[in-house]
Design a protein around this nucleic acid. Structure first.
Lengths: 127, 127
DNA sequence: TAAATAACTTACTTTATGTAACAAATGATA
DNA sequence: TATCATTTGTTACATAAAGTAAGTTATTTA
């Protein structure tokens, strides 16, 4: 029997969705949008993300060319993760998602959290 | 010990990312962007998506108000899934992702697939 | 009554993720 | 030199999510 790629999608678009919809990757990328961060910094900023999976994701994202890993041999060693140009180019994606969330998701905040408007910093201006 | 929500993210934005980054949901929503589809139509258009998970996701998306389930009591019964206004409002998200993919992902097409440029237009010829 | 068809469900297997203890790397310090 | 403190991971094991394939329901036709 002949195996057929039945997807009607552009392979690059499909790949982009695969990257972004893998669990935790979008959160990790978003956290790095605001600047370089260390391992524990990312870990503690994302609820329920385990160090084990963060380690896997960081390797995957580095392999995809979305983030860069920089080692600073201080005492103790400091390792920073930052977005590459390719990764930083995803900013508009998060901006559009934020716009949609603002318009369509209920606010339902039992405890008032941080102001949403400020969270996307320089990317907040509508497209 | 006091439990603290350590996330620095806007709850609505976090929710949006959660929805979109759950496995298969983005693909399902994208498929519905081009118009209402039946269960098997969605299933066959997304490689490796099982009927079991599709069934779960469709219920979740309906519960979120992103899609609508319509029953047509014909012979045999026909059930169509379509985007609500809330769901259709996600179109720009996919558009921006597609732009990013076009600019930053390698084309690496061993077999030339469908033209990427046409895939996000509402006028895409249906399956 | 039985077949045909679409839309799911259920039981079971495989894969992904969470948890918590442990190892590797680094320079300061004894 | 050797040990220590600190950060960054990694490993072993348990739990949760997803894949597979057979079964169920509902309906009309024969």
């Amino acid at each position: 029997m002949m195996m057929v790629n039945q997807s009607q999608m552009c392979p690059r678009f499909e790949k982009a969705i695969e990257i972004l919809s893998k669990r935790w990757t979008a959160f990790i990328l978003f956290q790095l949008l605001s600047g370089p961060k260390r391992f524990v910094g990312i870990e503690s900023s994302i609820t329920n993300l385990s160090g084990k999976v963060l380690s896997e994701r960081l390797k995957e994202l580095e392999a995809e060319g979305l983030i860069q890993r920089s080692v600073y041999p201080e005492t103790p060693v400091r390792i920073e993760y930052s977005l590459t140009d390719k990764g930083a180019a995803l900013a508009p994606v998060f901006s559009v998602i934020a716009s949609w969330a603002t318009e369509w998701l209920p606010t339902t905040a039992p405890i008032p959290g941080p102001e949403c408007e400020t969270l996307l910093s320089e990317t907040t201006s509508g497209s």
